[in-house]
Each structure stands twice: as structure tokens, then as C-alpha cells.
Design a protein around this nucleic acid. Structure first.
Length: 428
RNA sequence: GGCGCGGUGGCCGAGUGGCUAGGCAGAGGCCUGCAAAGCCUCGUACAGCAGUUCGAUUCUGCUCCGCGCCUCCA
């Protein structure tokens, strides 16, 4: 299997199974409900873990929850930990609704503090970091490969807010001394404080996956500075760290009038309420994981239609010549995990009526519910029967009236040749 | 300004040096009391300009346009 890696800027071959594949994905900073965009890496990497597991790998997925951070302090002055706890519950609740299960580990920064402090101390001891006024900074000049991941040239970076404690404008904080108004702090060799933004990921990844692991994932917007800094810290500490760096494309919001303010993002909660999990998952499948994807009513509507055609295949199986076998899906996903090609293969199976194969593929993507049909309430069954009776006596006015009534209840009646002569299908 | 990605038929979105992506929407037909679902048929696209080549949408260069990142960001 091959995956595109930002670090090597090319497709990188995974070692053949069975081997352990450690995957670390940057999860959210918890201070509000996550938005649809945050759900993309969550979905992609849970799918990937499923696929790798099915391919015979021992895949372990770790995805962190950053629960100490400037943004959390800013969002809830004086009670940041309560907000972090609340937002963590929201995150679990919202992502649970995707129905894909959970990562193998979801470490919290606040529960990894010993490892974080130990890692910083190591970097200080080896001269890759220095203490200044209770803060600790990473010495970028001490790490020759800095900039390798993002392609950013260190000498071209400019500092936004000059920090006199830094020896070099490019240096970044590993540890920050507690400031006025911050309601949480931890003891460290450098006094009370809390970790900087990047260090927690280095510490958690090493703790859970070891000093060398296969895949590190996250949104494209994390390449710099977050991942560049993670890589620098961990490599400077003598770890190989991640081999392959996967960065998913970002969601773009279009087709909706922007409310001018920054608050135009849609929460995952709202999207799930409005469109349902099946449509959202299918929507994510319609773009390659590295491509940007437009989130709009039109693109979501198209995804919903695709869900509908898959569902219909199980209600009314077509009989056609057999299409390609399972290996077609393997070929699609083994080459840079192309869900778009996988989708094309699945449509092929749908049209060919290869339903068991299709069901297996849908299950992989958490869409097995499309293969299940819901039983209609008894009163609707009764109405459908009365409609059949009306049709039998050519009372089409009554038959159409009943059909409208059933439709109003959110169901569709279809005339079929099989036994009861009708079929009730729930509409979205 | 620096780094990087991309421009494919009405829309979304793959892919390939010469041979079918796929989905949605649309047109016609079959089926149906009418529908729905399903089936059949239909679109000859690859930003522009040069170049390499027997042949380029696919390789190279340039131009135009769009997007992401450049210490808040999945």
C-alpha cells in the first residue's frame, strides 16, 4: 500500500503486513463544538485504520485532545478546565454520532504532563532548548533540518509580536510560565506553568506509539508551524518520529451567504442534524483525502442522492452481468487510499447487483445502514394495504390519496411485483 | 514577498502519452393506472500559448485564473 507523504513529497510504500502501523492524528483543541471541517480527519483516519486492519496490519490510532491552550484560557477566563471538560464531552458526543467507533487512544494533554515535562527537560539538557523567565523555548538554530516538512525557509520567517525572551525570532515555546488570569498550572523544573502548543503532541505520540511510528496525520493547515515544530522537537530529542505525514485537504464553505464575521463555520452537530451521518460520510468519500472539498447545499445534496441510490439497490436488486471483484476496491484504496475510486467501484457493484460485496464495502465506511431497511409503522402498512385494495378496484383517486398521506408521514410506497405488491421506503 | 497545491463535459469529481472513470442533473425510450424504483440510449471535456513526440488532456516552459500556509486554525 502506498500513501502520499508531505515530508517526502511523494507516495511512500508501507512495509508489507503484518507489521504494526502506529497512526497519530492531531485532534481538536477543546473550547467549543467542533465544526464539519474538524470531522474530516477524524473520518479519514478511522476509515484508514479499518482498511489497514482489514489488510492484516496491526493498526493503532491515537488522536489527542488538547485541553490546555491559549484559546481555552481566552474563551473561559477563570474556569478554563470546566470549559475544556464540557467541550471534550461535546467532541465525544458529536463524533460518536458519525458511527465509526473511536480511536484506540484519545490522550489528553493534561494527563500527559509528566511525559511533556520530561521531554522538555531532555531538550534543555541536550542544548536544543533553553529556559528564559520561566518559559522554555526550542532553539530552532540547533536543528539543521528545520523547515524540511513545510518547505518554509527559517531565515525568511518574520516574527509577528517580538518576544524579548527568545534568543531567535524563530524559536517557539515548549513551556509557558503561568500568567495572570490563567486558572490552571503545573509544577515544573522551571516553575509553575503549562505546555506550549506543539510539545504535547510530541510527548503523546512517543508515549503511545513509541519513538518511531508510521503515520502522522492532520489538516493541511497544521503543516506549519505545528507539525514542523513537532518534528523538530522529536527529532532533536533523538526520536525518528513519524515516517509518513498525511495532510488532509480543507473544507471550503461556499454557496451560503457568509455572515461577514468569522463565525460562519458550521458545527458538526448542526450538519449531522440537518443532513444525517450517511450523507456526510458519503460527502467525505466524494473527494480524495488530500483535495480541498466544497461544503455547500449542492454538494451535500449530491451526496444524499448517492446514499439514496445505494439504499435502493438493496430494495430492488438489479440483475446484471457480474462486475469486478473485491480486488478492485483493494486497488483503489491501496493506492493512496482513494475513496473516490472506491466509490466508483461500489457504484459498479451496485449496478451489477453484487450486493454482498457492496455491503462489505459500505460497512468499511460505516455506511452499512444503507443496506438495512427500516420496518414501517403498522398504520402505514395498513394504509398501503388499503391502497392496494383501491388499486385492485381501479379506485385510483383513493389510491393516490393514500399515497400522498403515506408520503406526508415521510415514507414512499412503491408498487412491486413481489409478494405484498408494495414496498414502503423511508425517505430521508 | 516566500513555500506549496490546483484549473477536466451543466455541476461534483477520478484518471491516463494513443483505448470507458464514477456520481448528480438533463434528454429520449422501456416498465407503470399514474408514480417511485429499475433498465436501455444520449454528452465526444480536459484554462491559454509554445515546445518535446508518429501522437498530449496526460511530459517541459511560459501566461492567465483560483486556493492553502507563512507562529489562532483539522
Amino acid at each position: 500500500m502506498r500513501l502520499y507523504s508531505t515530508l517526502q513529497r511523494k507516495l511512500v510504500e508501507l512495509p508489507p503486513p503484518p507489521v504494526e502501523i502506529g497512526i497519530y492524528v492531531c485532534g481538536p483543541t477543546v473550547y467549543q463544538r467542533i465544526h464539519v471541517g474538524n470531522a474530516r480527519p477524524y473520518v479519514i483516519f478511522l476509515w484508514l485504520r479499518r482498511w489497514l486492519t482489514g489488510r492484516g496490519y496491526a493498526a493503532t490510532l491515537a488522536s489527542n485532545i488538547t485541553d490546555v491552550n491559549d484559546k481555552i484560557y481566552a474563551a473561559a477566563p477563570g474556569h478554563s478546565s470546566e470549559l475544556a471538560e464540557q467541550a471534550t464531552r461535546w467532541y465525544i458526543e458529536d463524533t460518536d454520532r458519525l458511527g465509526l467507533g473511536r480511536p484506540d487512544a484519545e490522550p489528553k494533554a493534561t494527563e500527559t504532563m509528566d511525559d511533556i515535562i520530561r521531554l522538555i527537560a531532555e531538550l534543555v539538557a541536550s542544548g536544543h532548548a533553553y529556559e528564559a523567565g520561566g518559559d522554555v523555548y526550542f532553539r530552532v538554530a540547533s536543528f539543521g533540518d528545520y523547515g524540511q516538512l513545510s518547505g518554509q525557509k527559517p531565515d525568511q520567517m518574520t516574527e509577528q509580536e517580538p518576544n524579548p525572551l527568545k534568543q531567535d525570532a524563530r524559536d517557539f515555546a515548549l513551556w509557558k510560565a503561568t500568567k495572570e488570569g490563567e486558572d490552571t498550572s503545573w509544577d515544573s523544573p522551571w516553575g509553575k506553568g503549562r505546555p506550549g502548543w506543539h510539545i504535547e503532541c510530541s510527548a503523546m505520540a512517543a508515549k503511545l506509539l513509541g519513538p518511531a511510528f508510521e503515520i502522522h496525520g492532520g489538516g493541511l493547515d497544521l503543516v506549519f508551524p505545528h507539525h514542523e515544530n513537532e518534528l523538530a522537537q522529536s527529532r532533536a530529542a533523538g526520536q525518528e518520529f513519524a515516517h509518513i505525514w498525511m495532510h488532509n485537504g480543507l473544507l471550503r464553505l461556499t454557496g451560503e451567504k457568509m455572515s461577514k464575521s468569522l463565525g460562519n463555520v458550521q458545527t458538526l452537530e448542526r450538519v449531522l442534524d440537518e443532513w444525517g451521518r450517511e450523507t456526510l460520510l458519503l460527502f467525505f468519500m466524494t473527494a480524495h483525502w488530500r483535495s480541498p472539498i466544497d461544503f455547500s447545499p449542492a454538494t451535500m445534496e449530491a451526496a444524499r442522492e448517492q446514499a439514496w441510490t445505494f439504499r435502493n439497490a438493496f430494495l430492488h436488486p438489479p440483475e446484471r452481468q457480474p462486475a469486478r471483484g473485491w480486488e478492485a476496491l483493494e486497488a483503489a484504496l491501496d493506492e493512496d487510499f482513494s475513496t473516490t475510486e472506491a466509490l466508483a467501484v461500489m457504484h459498479e457493484w451496485r449496478a451489477a447487483g453484487q450486493l454482498e460485496q457492496l455491503r462489505r464495502a459500505l460497512t468499511l465506511f460505516g455506511l452499512e445502514t444503507l443496506a438495512e431497511s427500516e420496518r414501517a409503522p403498522a398504520e402505514l402498512e395498513e394504509m398501503a394495504r388499503r391502497r392496494q385494495a383501491a388499486r385492485a378496484t381501479s379506485d385510483f383517486a383513493e389510491a393516490d390519496r393514500l399515497r400522498d398521506e403515506i408520503a406526508a408521514a415521510g415514507w414512499e410506497v412503491r408498487d412491486v411485483s413481489d409478494d405484498p405488491g408494495y414496498q414502503l421506503v423511508k425517505k430521508d
